[in-house]
Amino acid sequence: MPKKASPTFVCPVCESAVLTEPARSAKTGGGSFEICPCCGFQHGVDDDDKGITHAQARAAWRKAGAKWTSKTQPPPKGWAKTR
């Protein structure tokens, strides 16, 4: 396996590789509680507590302009060009 520059996992909602851990644990099934800095979906909370599906969250995020959500974590280089 190649050396990792920094660990990045794909958010299943916005499909951006910006998560620091898998959205859900492959071992326990539990959500990571991480808030995606791109679409703002909090895994393990927006789904498990509020009942929002990934498809619903994705549609809402795109309808709102598919904007980067986090005010403190900047988007990766080149992210804006693909939106």
């Binding site: 990792k4 099934g29 990934h54 498809a55």
Partner: peptide, 24 residues
């Protein structure tokens, strides 16, 4: 030489496909 992103998927077939996470 460089890992950029990691994720998972389920090949559709006998069991329920998981292109979305269980939370879908």
């Amino acid at each position: 030489r460089l890992a950029l992103a990691t994720n998972s998927f389920t090949a559709p077939g006998l069991s329920e496909a998981r292109t979305e996470s269980p939370a879908a």
